[in-house]
Computed example of a mutant assay.
Amino acid sequence: MKKFFYPLVLLTAFTISCSSDDDATSTSTLRLNLNGLENLGANFVYEGWIVVNGTPITTGTFTVNDAGMLSKTEFDVDRNQLRNATDFVLSIEPTNDPDPAPSNTKYLAGSFNGVTATVTSGIIGDFSVSTGKYVLGTPTNGNANPNAGVWFMNGNGPSVGLSLPTLDAGWKYEGWVVSNGVVLSTGTFSNPNGPDMSAIYSGMMPSPPFPGEDFLLNAPAGLTFPANLSGATLVISVEPFPDNSPMPFTLKPLSHNVANPAITGTTISMERSLMSFPTGTVSR
């Protein structure tokens, strides 16, 4: 069963405002002015919803191009439904969606206060206190190439290295390495306290029970493994599920630039980076 609305934690503010209409009109127009939404590709769209008496009602879909421009910025909405709405939600939906209800991938949301609602990405989780640690090393080949692998953990123990909010069914975390312009995934995961779902590049020896990857085997075309992560950028992103792209999504709460030359075998802290979260207003 799809859940529709969750407690909100305000991270990045959006505003929806409504002015009174003439009683003779049957619709009101919502105007969107949003920045920071990414192009979802051909298979997914954004969709707005108002919640009336606990029931979600669509306000329409739109896409975003590579320049961040919305395909549609004005939407006609039933006047009485908008007046009686308690909440607004923006979700990510399949382009050809057979389900009339909102997906689990709810992106922005907020409650109306009179004629105005402030919507945020807090419906996904509160990342304002998120922290991350990592260690460079290659445990899956006995640490023979320590600057070729990264594990998002505290090397003391070892123990959990990521402190992140629990995600609902429409989202997953994913680790990334960006080195010499090449983007490589370390795998997706829902539980920061356990392993991720990928080990396609790692060696044959056991890996730590935490997210991470050794870049030793099965190098993609144009790359040579064992890798050297000196100077690379490490990222933890929040990805839609199902995912719209094999590349990192807009939401990147944690990141860090690896030293050059890399420092291996030492626990290193990541930086919180909430600037990637979208901003904008929606008004009527």
Rank of each mutant, 00 (worst) to 15 (best):
S71P: 08
A85W: 01
G54H: 01
T59F: 10
T55R: 12
W49H: 07
F75Y: 11
A85K: 04
D87R: 11
V77F: 04
V64H: 02
G41Y: 01
I57A: 02
E47P: 09
D76V: 02
L70M: 15
Q81D: 12
N84W: 08
S71A: 12
I57T: 09
M69S: 14
D87Q: 10
Q81C: 06
A67I: 04
N80C: 01
L40D: 05
T61E: 15
A67F: 14
T73Q: 14
N84M: 10
N39F: 09
V52N: 03
I57C: 12
V77K: 01
F88L: 12
E74T: 15
N53Y: 13
G41V: 01
T59P: 07
V64Y: 03
E38L: 13
T63M: 09
D78L: 09
L70N: 12
G41M: 10
V45S: 05
R79L: 01
I57R: 07
G68R: 07
F44I: 02
D76K: 15
E47V: 13
E74Y: 05
L70W: 04
V51C: 06
F88H: 05
F44L: 11
Y46I: 11
E38S: 14
D78T: 05
E74F: 08
D87W: 00
A42I: 08
R83M: 06
K72F: 06
L70S: 02
G60Q: 05
L70P: 13
Y46C: 09
